[in-house]
Design a binder for these strands. Structure first.
Lengths: 153, 153
DNA sequence: GTTGAAAGCGCGGCAAG
DNA sequence: CTTGCCGCGCTTTCAAC
């Protein structure tokens, strides 16, 4: 993982449809060397996959909510398993502070979100409390990660 | 946006490197019809782009934090503009409740995260308070959106 | 690491039904 | 919408350096 790999990773995050010729320019390498680096990055799972980036509004889930959840300590693992299988739950993090989990959820409407929380989350054994915050607007929402300068492997 | 488009969108979210032949199977259409649908989905910006999905740990930003921020009401727009330009800030949402913003931030270490908050966020005029929550583990973290059944256009 | 060539697959466009 | 065809371009692999 050197400077060249980092430049490649920056580029493929911005445009995953870029061809090898374009990426080779970014990398400052030949096309074949660039292809090999990308293959290695995929094999090492530094690149986990390639995905289409969709507009949430266009596909009918404009509403974004964050839910804090407090569970009993022995219900945590089962709760995580449940969250993993629920499509509207984009993220489920264990967090510091007085709550157990922070969830990021997308739904088609406020009603759908509230229904989901009361019918699925609150009904789960082990959930002691839940608190919902609604995102009223989003100045930024990206999955493009910052590439740090370190990690010279 | 019909059932076929939804199936295509589900597929390209899971595997953006899938070829048209494979997507045609998923869609239940011919390759040419599938290609045209994808082109239309891109033109309408339902598909906003194609991106490589990277492993945060592999690229040196394993630490995930959420930061609540309270700003003065006239500092909000400027704060949003600042956030948009900061790479470690993956998300910046206006939210209901007593805080103004919720940020999602990735950094290489706890120290880097705390430094970033105190040097960049807390120093910004208009920021009255900030509260940091650290994600100690993540059971799920995806950008794959649920595709709702509605919206028959 | 480089260039260059060869082979093959896939995409894009078009025609016809 | 379908099938079929054609041509270009890109990826992939290989060789030689």
């Amino acid at each position: 993982m050197d400077e060249i790999d980092r430049n490649i990773l920056i580029a493929v995050q911005k445009d995953g449809a870029a061809g090898l010729a374009e990426l080779a320019k970014v990398a400052g390498l030949s096309v074949s060397a660039t292809a090999e680096r990308i293959k290695r990055l995929e094999e090492r799972n530094t690149i986990r996959g390639w995905r289409a980036d969709l507009d949430p509004e266009a596909i009918g889930c404009p509403l974004l909510g964050f839910v804090f959840v407090r569970t009993s300590s022995d219900g945590r693992a089962a709760f995580e398993g449940l969250m993993r299988g629920l499509e509207p739950v984009l993220e489920c993090h264990s967090i510091t502070g007085s709550w157990t989990f922070l969830l990021k959820i997308r739904a088609e409407s406020l009603q759908a979100l509230e229904t989901f929380i009361s019918d699925v989350l609150a009904r789960f054994d082990g959930v002691a409390r839940a608190k919902l915050l609604i995102a009223t607007s989003s100045a930024k929402e990206t999955s493009i990660l910052p590439i740090s300068e370190a990690d010279e492997e």
